[in-house]
Computed example of a mutant assay.
Amino acid sequence: MRITRRIALGLSAAALALTIGGATAQEKLRIGTEGAYPPFNNLTADGKLEGFDIDIARALCEEMGVECEFVTQDWDGIIPALQAGKFDAIIASMSITEERKKQVDFTEKYYNTPPALVVMKDSDIAGAMAEDLAGKVIGAQAATTHAQFAEATFPDSDVKVYPTAEEYKLDMANGRLDAVIDDVIVLQEWLGTADGECCRVLDTLTPVEEIYGEGIGIAVRQGEDELREKFNAAIQAIRDNGTYKEINDKYFSFDAYGS
Rank of each mutant, 00 (worst) to 15 (best):
D158Y: 15
V180Q: 00
K250H: 02
S253Y: 05
E224N: 13
E108Q: 12
A147S: 15
T206K: 14
Y251F: 04
G139K: 05
A140T: 08
G135V: 10
Q103H: 10
L202D: 10
I90F: 02
P155R: 09
L9E: 07
K121L: 15
A194C: 07
V220P: 02
E108I: 10
P38I: 09
L11G: 04
D183E: 09
D76V: 14
I96H: 01
E210V: 06
K245D: 03
L205S: 00
T204I: 15
F87R: 01
L227V: 06
T72N: 13
G22D: 10
G175K: 01
V208Y: 04
K136F: 07
L16V: 12
Y257R: 05
L29Q: 08
I235F: 12
P38Y: 05
Y257I: 12
D249N: 06
L60Q: 09
A165L: 07
E131W: 09
Y168H: 13
A126K: 14
L205R: 00
I91W: 04
L191F: 00
V137Y: 04
A219V: 05
A8G: 00
D195A: 15
M172N: 08
N174F: 14
C199F: 04
A130P: 03
A237P: 01
L227K: 06
D240Y: 03
D225G: 12
E166C: 00
V220G: 02
L29R: 09
E210T: 08
R228E: 04
E131V: 13
D105M: 12
A165H: 03
V186C: 04
A25R: 14
E131Y: 12
E226K: 05
A179K: 03
E50I: 11
C61F: 11
L82R: 01
N42M: 15
G192S: 02
S93F: 06
F254I: 13
E167Q: 10
D132G: 11
G47H: 02
G51I: 01
A23N: 02
F40H: 01
Y168F: 15
V184Q: 09
K136M: 10
V66P: 05
C198L: 09
R58V: 11
M120L: 15
E166H: 00
C68A: 15
E226S: 09
A140I: 03
F254T: 09
I235T: 09
M129E: 13
G35M: 05
L202N: 12
R200M: 10
C68R: 08
E166K: 03
Q188G: 04
L43H: 00
V180W: 00
A59E: 08
R2S: 11
D105A: 13
G135Y: 09
I185D: 01
H146F: 07
E224V: 06
I216Q: 07
A92N: 02
E108T: 11
S123M: 10
R200Y: 05
G135M: 10
D124I: 14
I181C: 01
W190P: 01
G213M: 01
D124P: 05
D122N: 15
K86M: 08
A219D: 07
R200V: 10
I3K: 07
A219F: 03
H146S: 05
E50R: 10
S12C: 14
L49I: 07
D46E: 11
W75R: 11
A256T: 07
T44R: 07
